[in-house]
C-alpha cells in the first residue's frame, strides 16, 4: 500500500523533532530512513505506525487519511530493535497473537491461525522451534520471530526500527540479505530505520537521508552515493574529504594555487570542495594539482589509505591508492580528484 506523509511536524514538549516533512512511499517498496541519532528517523517511523501522533500534518495510507486512526486500526507490522517478544508465550503463540486477539467476526478458525503461523515460521526459517520460548532463542532468531509476528496480521506496511541494531556484525549481514529475500518474496511495503549506511545502501530500493528533523535527500543508493545534494549527505554517506577553496573565473583555487579543476559557470567566490578518497588520480609533477606531505599511510584490506597535509593551511585529506605503491612518510604526493562536487557556503 502507498504511504504518503504530508507536511508533518512533530514537537516534543515544544521542541521540534520533525519539521514540515513530506515523503511518498510507493507500494511494495523497501525504503530506508538513514540518519545520525537525533535526526528524527525513529520519530517518523513511529508517526507512520501511529505510536506517536503528529503535531501537524497528515499521513495517508493509500487514498485514506490515516492520521486520526489508532495504532490498532492502522493494521501495520512493527519490529522493534530489542525484539519486544512476549516472553511468556511460545514462538508459535507469539506469531499467532495478532490473529488470536481479533474479534470473533474476523478471526480465522484456530486450525487456520496455526497453519498460517507455521507457514510464517517456515518463511523465516524457524521451523521446528515453534514450541520454544523467546528466552531459549538467539538474538537473530528472536528478531526473525518478531518479523514473522509482524507479518502475521498481513500489514498494510511493515515498519522496522533498527531491526539489526542489537545483533553482532556477522548475524547482521546474514539477516540483511535474508530480509531482502523475504521482501522480494512477500512484496510488503517496508520502511526501516537505520544509522548504518552500509545497511541502507545495500538493502533499500530508496534511501531517505535525514538530519535534524529534515529530509536531506531521497534517492536510490546510487543517487545518494554518487550525487549527494548537500554537504551533509556528502559527509555522512561514505568517506569524503572537504577543502575550503575559491572559484575565480571558472577555475578552482586552493589558497594561492590552481588545483587543475575547472568549474565552468560557477560564480566567483569561496566554496567547499568535496571528493571521495577513491575518486582521485595520482599525478607526477604538478602543473595544477593537489599536493602535500604524507602524514600517515595505512594498509586497509585491498587499498592503502594515505593521509596528506595540504598547503599552508595544513588541511588534511585522505586518499586511497593501490596497495603496491610504496609511500614513505613525510614524502610528497600529488593527486587530482577525478570526481568532485562544489558546495557554496
Amino acid at each position: 500500500m502507498d504511504v504518503r506523509v504530508k507536511d508533518i511536524r512533530k514537537e516534543f514538549s515544544h521542541l521540534p523533532a520533525l519539521e514540515n516533512l513530506s515523503l511518498d512511499i510507493r507500494s511494495g517498496e523497501l525504503i530506508a530512513l538513514l540518519g545520525p541519532s537525533g535526526s528524527g528517523k525513529t520519530t517518523l517511523l513511529r508517526l507512520i505506525a501511529g505510536l506517536e501522533s503528529p503535531t501537524r500534518g497528515t499521513i495517508y495510507f493509500g487514498e485514506e487519511d490515516a492520521s486520526s486512526k489508532t495504532v490498532q486500526e492502522r493494521n501495520i507490522g512493527f519490529v522493534f530493535q530489542h525484539y519486544a517478544l512476549f516472553r511468556h508465550m511460545t514462538v508459535l503463540d507469539n506469531v499467532a497473537f495478532g490473529l488470536t486477539i481479533r474479534p470473533s467476526g474476523t478471526r480465522p478458525p484456530k486450525a487456520e491461525i496455526r497453519r498460517r503461523a507455521l507457514d510464517l515460521l517456515d518463511l523465516v526459517q524457524l521451523s521446528g522451534l515453534e514450541k520454544r520460548y523467546p528466552a531459549q532463542l538467539s538474538g537473530g532468531q528472536r528478531q526473525r520471530v518478531a518479523l514473522a509476528r509482524a507479518m502475521a496480521v498481513e500489514p498494510n506496511v511493515l515498519l522496522l526500527d533498527e531491526p539489526f541494531g542489537a545483533l553482532d556484525a556477522q548475524v547482521r549481514k546474514e539477516l540483511r540479505r535474508w530480509l531482502r529475500e523475504i521482501h522480494d518474496r512477500t512484496g510488503h511495503t517496508t520502511v526501516f530505520v537505520t544509522h548504518d549506511q552500509d545497511e541502507a545502501l545495500e538493502l533499500a530500493d530508496r534511501v531517505v537521508v535525514m538530519s535534524k528533523g529534515r529530509i536531506e535527500q531521497v534517492g536510490t543508493p546510487d543517487e545518494i552515493y554518487d550525487a549527494p545534494n548537500s554537504p551533509f549527505v556528502f559527509g555522512f554517506i561514505g568517506e569524503s574529504n572537504c577543502l575550503p577553496v575559491r572559484v575565480e573565473s571558472g577555475q578552482i583555487w586552493l589558497e594561492d594555487r590552481l588545483i587543475g579543476l575547472s568549474a565552468p559557470g560557477e560564480a566567483d567566490g569561496s566554496a567547499r570542495l568535496f571528493f571521495r578518497p577513491h575518486d582521485i588520480e595520482l599525478v607526477d609533477g604538478c602543473g595544477g594539482c593537489l599536493a602535500g606531505i604524507v602524514v600517515q599511510s595505512r594498509r586497509v584490506a585491498g587499498t592503502r589509505h594515505v593521509e596528506i597535509e595540504i598547503g599552508a593551511g595544513r588541511a588534511r585529506v585522505e586518499i586511497e591508492v593501490p596497495p603496491q605503491k610504496a609511500i614513505g612518510e613525510a614524502s610528497r604526493l600529488a593527486f587530482r580528484p577525478t570526481r568532485f562536487k562544489l558546495f557554496r557556503d
Binding site: Q72, H82, L85
Partner: peptide, 21 residues
C-alpha cells in the same frame, strides 16, 4: 518494557487485551 505493550498495540490488541494477555 514499554515496547512490549507497543508491540501488542501494533498487532491490534486493545488496552484490555494487552493487560490481560
Amino acid at each position: 518494557d514499554r515496547e512490549v505493550e507497543e508491540a501488542a498495540a501494533t498487532l491490534g490488541a486493545n488496552r484490555f487485551q494487552t493487560v490481560s494477555r
